[in-house]
Simulated scan of single mutants.
Amino acid sequence: MPALTLRPVERPRDDDAFVEFLSAHEFPFHMQPRPTAEEAHKRLTSGIVDGPGAFGCWVLADGEMVGIVTLEDLEDDTALIDLRLAEDARGRGIGTAILPVIVREVFDRFPTVRKLEGQTREDNVAMRRAFRRAGWVKEAHYREGWPVAGGQPLASVAYAILRSDVQSGTTTPVPWDDEP
């Protein structure tokens, strides 16, 4: 496994690289599977990496850019993660290995965040496995919650990790059968 690190996206220095990365790769399990350069630029200028409550980092493997992670709602106690890996970086265990690095970065940099959450489509088996292997817990299964262009909606599956669990080295179970 290569050494995995994060490097904050710096604007405007990284603007062209951000647009190039998003528009050069296909992300089949995202709402926009292949953003155009114009769409990627619009996403960037909307503040996705540096707006209020937002932060973006490059995912580096042995210093080579292999992905990007954007975080939203960092002013709240629950932040949201969006991880995108380059096509040639998938299937190598990078998703599972980078998640703890992201968790440390968020919990160290943003002390008011107590929970980090990510959602993916039900058919994104690789990301679902990555979340579980990295210690995240499935918290929700939103039936028909993910629109699919030209097709039936799929379920959106939510995973999360708690700051308190990371600090204690434990996992707080979800009380699925708590109704009296």
Rank of each mutant, 00 (worst) to 15 (best):
L4P: 10
L6W: 06
P8E: 05
P8V: 01
P8Q: 02
V9S: 03
R13C: 00
R13Q: 06
D14Y: 13
D16Y: 08
D16Q: 15
D16M: 09
A17N: 12
F18N: 04
V19H: 04
V19T: 06
V19M: 04
E20I: 01
F21S: 05
H25R: 00
H25W: 00
F27A: 01
F27R: 07
F27Q: 09
H30R: 00
P33I: 06
R34P: 02
P35M: 08
T36W: 07
T36K: 10
A37H: 03
A37K: 03
E38G: 11
E38M: 08
E39L: 05
A40Q: 02
H41S: 09
H41T: 03
R43M: 13
S46A: 08
S46K: 04
G47V: 15
G47S: 13
G47L: 13
I48P: 04
V49H: 14
D50S: 15
D50I: 11
G51P: 01
P52G: 05
C57L: 06
D62L: 10
D62S: 11
D62N: 12
V69R: 01
V69L: 00
L71S: 00
E72Y: 06
D73I: 02
D73K: 11
D76R: 15
L80A: 03
I81L: 15
L83S: 11
L85D: 14
A86E: 00
E87T: 07
D88L: 06
R90G: 02
R90E: 01
R90A: 01
R92K: 15
G93M: 03
G93I: 02
A97F: 00
I98G: 12
V101W: 05
I102P: 04
V103C: 05
V106E: 05
D108H: 13
D108K: 11
D108M: 10
R109F: 03
F110P: 00
F110M: 04
T112N: 14
T112I: 06
V113T: 13
V113G: 13
V113L: 09
R114M: 10
R114H: 13
K115C: 08
L116N: 07
L116E: 02
E117T: 11
G118W: 04
Q119V: 05
Q119S: 13
T120S: 07
T120C: 08
R121Q: 14
E122M: 03
D123E: 13
V125M: 15
M127A: 15
M127Q: 15
A130I: 15
F131K: 10
W136S: 13
W136T: 15
W136K: 12
K138L: 14
A140F: 15
A140S: 15
Y142M: 02
R143M: 11
R143C: 05
R143L: 08
G145N: 02
G145A: 07
P147W: 10
G150Q: 12
G151A: 12
G151R: 10
Q152V: 07
Q152A: 15
L154F: 08
A155F: 05
S156D: 14
A158F: 03
Y159H: 10
Y159N: 04
R163Y: 05
R163T: 14
S164D: 04
Q167L: 01
S168N: 09
T171F: 00
T172S: 13
P173F: 05
P173L: 07
P173G: 11
V174N: 09
W176F: 09
E179W: 10
P180F: 13
